[in-house]
Simulated scan of single mutants.
Amino acid sequence: MSHTFSNLLLIVSVFLSGTQAVPQAPIASICSFQWTPSSAYDIFKDLINTSGYHKDVRPINASAPFDPTTGATPTTVKVNFFVSTIESIDEVGGSFRVQLLFRQKWLDPRLAYENSFQYQNQCNNNRPSTLRIPDSMIDNVWTPDLYISQELDSKKHGLFHPNQFIKVTPKGNVNFSQRITLTLSCPQLAKSDVVKKECDMSVESYGHLQDELALDWTEEHPVYVEKDIFAPRKYKLDKLTNGRCDTTTSYGVYSCIKAKFHFSRN
């Protein structure tokens, strides 16, 4: 009896040692929230309409430097633009007309959605890196009150649809892009005795001092031009440079950035 039982154990052990585990198919991760075209609308509707967000209140970055003399923490806005077309040069009136893709970037922690229910319940590989704010909500979002000192006329494009967007990262980094055409004053264009002419384009806040809104250029490609861009009336755009033009007034110091168009006449 014991001999038979021992043989049985031997057979079972041999059988088990030769058996390989069958690989199991990975269990598919379960997404409790399916991403749809309306998902961005739902996220920003909650952030803008129901969380106390106010478009007239500028965003405050807790990590930004605090100025003890004014008690203010500035909102930093970084700018760059791309020159796509120089439409006209008016030597008599001393002006030129240019088409730009104008971009502004800032941090608005109130628009951060990384902890929102809709975003948290997405599968990791299904989470978008940025969300576009729906066009119907753009007017409800804070944007910088910028103006251009040399502006004589301006136009925002949008024959079929407004040529603009606001995209936001999960942490609240905002990218505001617009396609605009500007007619800018440039007195040097009216001077016939000047061969090389420099035309400024100065950008600053209309109502916020430097300790409230700080303007700066983006680190990469602050200003750049369409390759082989054409300038009318025998002119050539030699280069486009950028710098600063901070302005001191009776109210205080305004942050200002400046681009300079360097024209020469053939």
Rank of each mutant, 00 (worst) to 15 (best):
S255C: 03
S38A: 15
A259N: 10
I89R: 02
Y206F: 05
K105T: 10
A72Q: 14
Q34G: 04
D153W: 14
Y251K: 15
F15G: 06
F82M: 02
K191D: 03
P232E: 02
K227M: 07
P134V: 08
H157K: 04
V79R: 08
D42A: 07
N140Q: 12
C31T: 12
T218S: 15
V203N: 02
N115F: 12
Y235R: 04
P68M: 13
K236D: 06
K196Y: 09
A25M: 01
F263T: 02
H3I: 12
Y41V: 09
T248V: 15
R127A: 11
L182I: 00
Q122K: 00
S149K: 03
F176N: 15
I133T: 09
G71C: 03
N49W: 15
S149C: 07
I133S: 06
F263R: 04
A25L: 12
V225H: 04
G94K: 01
G172C: 11
S2G: 15
S17M: 14
L159A: 04
I43A: 00
S13R: 14
F66D: 05
T69M: 08
S39H: 01
Q34P: 00
E198V: 05
D211E: 11
T218Q: 11
I60Y: 09
K155M: 09
R103T: 15
F44P: 03
R265P: 05
G243A: 12
L159F: 03
E87A: 11
A214W: 13
P128S: 02
Q118K: 12
D67E: 10
S116G: 08
D211F: 14
F160N: 13
P162C: 00
Q164E: 15
P134I: 04
I89E: 00
Q150H: 07
L9V: 10
F261S: 03
H208I: 07
M137C: 00
E91H: 04
L237W: 07
Q164D: 12
F44K: 03
S63P: 01
I133H: 10
G18P: 02
W142I: 12
L9E: 10
T218A: 13
K236C: 03
S88W: 01
P187D: 08
M137W: 01
T183A: 04
G252D: 13
P128I: 05
S129R: 12
V79F: 11
S129E: 13
G18L: 10
L182A: 01
F230H: 08
K196F: 08
V83D: 08
Y113V: 08
Q122N: 06
